[in-house]
Structure formats: C-alpha cells, structure tokens
Design a binder for these strands. Structure first.
Lengths: 155, 155
DNA sequence: TTGCGTGCAAAGGTTTTGCATGGCA
DNA sequence: TGCCATGCAAAACCTTTGCACGCAA
C-alpha cells in the first residue's frame, strides 16, 4: 500500500518542533533534546525526516554559522514566501520580518535589475539587537545559545 | 624577519583570480583549473590562501549551493560593504547591486527592527534574468555553468 | 640562516547511504 | 503479509591541521 506511516519517531519530532516553533536547531541539537526527554530518535531518522519536512515546507532549512545546517519549524499559517528573514551571524537566531519595504524591494529588484527575489531563501545577515549590546559590553562567547526568536511586524 | 613571502603558488592563484574577476569558484575548481594550465597548487595551500584573501577582503567567500564554499575575486576598487549581492540559485552566479534602495533598507532595518545589516555577508537569493528565461523555455540542467557575471548599478 | 609557505596525509566534522531489522497498516 | 521506517555503522564529503621539507628574503 502506498503512503507514509505514522511512527513514534515522527510524532516525537513533530511534537518537539511544534513546541519550539520559530526556534533554530541543528540536527544534533534536536536529537539531543529529544534524548533528554526520553524520546530518542536516531540521527539518520532525524536527518531524513527533517529533510522531508523541509521539502514539504513546514520546516525551514538553512545554512547557519560554520556551515551547519539549521532547521526551524514554521507555523502552518506562516507564508514565508511573503516576508524576509534576518539571520544573526553571532547567535544564529533567525527572525521573520513582515515589512512593507520588503515588497517594494522585491518589486524594485525585479523591475530594475531583472532578478526575481526568493524571499523564502533570502537571508538578511547581520547582528541582532541582543548581540550588538553584548558586543558593546564584554566579550561574546562563541555560541550565544539564545535561541528564542521573534517576529518583527513593521509599522 | 616579519612579513609575507611571495611564492609561485600565491602568484598563480592571484593571477587566476584577477583573470576571472567576479566569477565564482569552489576551492576544488580553482585547484583543477590551475592544474589544467600546468600551474598546480596544493589543495591545502588553496584553502589557506583563499581564506587569507577573504579575510583581507580582496576575495568574497560565501556558502553556495550544497553547502560548498564559494570564492569570488573582487576588484580592488570594489567596496563590497557598500552594496548588496544577488545570488542566482540556479546557476550560482553572484551579482553586485549598487542601488540607493539598499542603503534605505539598511537604515530602515536598523531603525525599525534593531538589526544591523552586514551587506558583505547578505545574499539576495533568487533567479537571474537568464535562468528565468531558460525556465520559461525548456528544462534547466542542474549546473548551468554560466559563471560570467555582472554588475547592476541602479539609476 | 631564519622562518614562512607548501603539500601530503591524517584527522575532524557534518551529512548521506547500505542494509538488516522492526513496526505500521 | 507487504512495505515503509528505523538505526547502526560505514562511507562520502568538505575542510582543517600536523609535520617535515622547501624556498624566499
């Protein structure tokens, strides 16, 4: 019979992602966090299923710092093709930006530069507010580990 | 004595990069192309020197498709921190965009979203004009291999 | 002569794959 | 009972590093 099976591993992964919507994880982190809560999932399985979810669109997949692939669960209602994303190069946090200027930008680029922007894949790289403050203050440690994340709806 | 030595390998690499300004290469491609012209350079050396050039700023380094690091030689007069870059997800071509809207964007993001954009690392991903035309026509092959590249100065 | 640069080979890390086993329908 | 899914281990990859040798200054 054709189709997909519902397994414990898939359910655990899905549950974890739902609970941590808009947070960013590497495959290893997901595996680790699941193991901590006693819901172990094999690394291969995590790779395979996250990849599938990314293709299906319910998870964003992108290259974070040090070339490590990051995954981020996106709520069903989120249409990531309609807003842009800011990636903090310090802590790896990914933020969604709903902002009118983005649409103007897309339109401008298309009309004046003959280039069709893909908001889903485009990443505005820089330094987020928190990390900028840390920079101003003491030294910054490598990871940062602040994985909470938000949305910026512009006025 | 402090300082850098001028070696055959460095000169070959530099010469190749100058000849292929604004084109994009992986380390392997550079090594291969140099070997083809009888100017072999070890992989480690290529990695080390390209990395050095990237830090120094005369070469752009970025994560291309499939997580393979790409390098692009930039002319001396180019100040890549002052304009943005568009990366075609089909053929891998990288284009420089000098455009007033980009500065407005940076300023807006900083003021309204508390995020400091890094133009040097930000990549506007999408489909370039050529590939869009190909899409409209027949099927597109994976690589595309059109590595020539241009600049878009906006009016 | 001094010490940076080079290149090989090995190590390092992430991601993919092969295959036997296990579980869903 | 059929297949799909899983997980281990191995392979595949790109990249970095250690170290002995070579070469520029």
């Amino acid at each position: 019979m054709r189709g997909e099976y519902s397994t414990r591993q898939k359910r655990e992964l899905l549950k974890f992602l739902k609970e941590h919507e808009l947070e960013n994880f590497s495959v290893d982190e997901v595996v680790l966090r699941l193991r901590e809560r006693g819901a172990s999932v094999g690394r291969s399985t995590a790779y395979r299923y996250l990849e599938a979810l990314a293709e299906q669109g319910s998870v964003r997949k992108y290259a974070g710092a040090q070339g490590i692939t990051q995954y981020q669960s996106v709520s069903d209602s989120d249409d990531c093709s309609r807003h842009f994303h800011m990636l903090c190069k310090r802590c790896g946090t990914l933020m969604h930006v709903d902002c009118g200027l983005m649409e103007s930008l897309s339109r401008h680029i298309a009309e004046h530069h003959g280039f069709q922007l893909d908001a889903r894949e485009t990443m505005l790289v820089g330094v987020c507010e928190k990390c900028a403050q840390k920079d101003a203050g003491g030294e910054v440690d490598g990871d940062g580990a602040d994985r909470t994340e938000g949305r910026h709806d512009c006025v």
